[in-house]
Design a protein around this nucleic acid. Sequence first.
DNA 1: GAGTCACATGTAAGTCTTGACATGTCAATA
DNA 2: TATTGACATGTCAAGACTTACATGTGACTC
Lengths: 175, 175
Amino acid sequence: MSLRIALLGLLDATGPASGYDLAKAFEKSLNHVWQAGHTQIYPELVKMAEDGLVEVESEGARGRKIYAITPEGAARLHEWLVGHEPSVVIRSETALQAFLLSLLDVDDAIAVVRRIKADAESRLAGLECLGSPGSELFTGRFALDLGLRQARAMVDWAEATLAVLGERKASLQGA
Amino acid sequence: MSLRIALLGLLDATGPASGYDLAKAFEKSLNHVWQAGHTQIYPELVKMAEDGLVEVESEGARGRKIYAITPEGAARLHEWLVGHEPSVVIRSETALQAFLLSLLDVDDAIAVVRRIKADAESRLAGLECLGSPGSELFTGRFALDLGLRQARAMVDWAEATLAVLGERKASLQGA
DNA sequence: GAGTCACATGTAAGTCTTGACATGTCAATA
DNA sequence: TATTGACATGTCAAGACTTACATGTGACTC
């Protein structure tokens, strides 16, 4: 369902596009919000066309197929955006690592948290780059801000956790 | 894969348990980190037993089957915890709503963000409750901290976004 | 004794997602 | 002209996940 919404949203925001374009747009702009490759997008567009949410038009040249959102598609999109209850399905491998951190000895734990921190920092840098002048983020300024805040929260957590682990290590060595 | 890790982690941290126990533990403690119901857990435990990661022992009474982690299982768990690259697979419906917020008119957008905010606040309250004295969080203090930070980041984002939308609305009315 | 609730385990159908494979066009360049 | 690389579309198998269905026990209470 959410994949449909994402595709409808892109089509609504940027106008008609090919599956290829949509896959690129996903990679570039929606990446930190939802993920999908072309192998998921192409079949989904076909189904959406069957359901009357988008219209196809073959643009001769290179076998390109241009999809455009229909009024019905726009209605469904609007409906979802306004009416969808935020279902908190969380599935984060990093959080899982954090959860099980106590099972590791201090040195391993420190190494793991450092890796998580480095990863979050590079994600943060990537997002900051997206938001910098010159980058045309047609839509998604709000989502970018959310992404930045989430990434910063992760970095902060890693720093605080490293501090705790450092203390723990010191007290172990003192003993 | 991650489901296996989560189950191995629980077994390692709390000792032998039945599938039922594990499902409960998932719901209670791992909920904000990873989600899985019994219909996913039972078959997975069977496969894990086949792979030698856990050992089963039927405890007569009510058909209970007690699973215990094997040395091999513990080794795999450790390996994953220490060696797993943090793969950032993000799939958040809320972030998707945030991404497409610009497609809505100001009033709808405000309503959506308010809902997101309320949701994040209740999640935050739930987590704070988990961390309060009397709650025995065998493990997962670090993950709880991470969850708190993420939830707070969401609340902060909602507040900042509401401020922006409020201004936008005011300027529209002024025009 | 009947009913209800928490315990306890499963199956099956269907959807979502990933990763590997497969095919062909067009433009530039070596 | 041959090759490379971006463009462009797809299929298929396998795995992850959800929802609904199905079954039976033991303890307590009405």
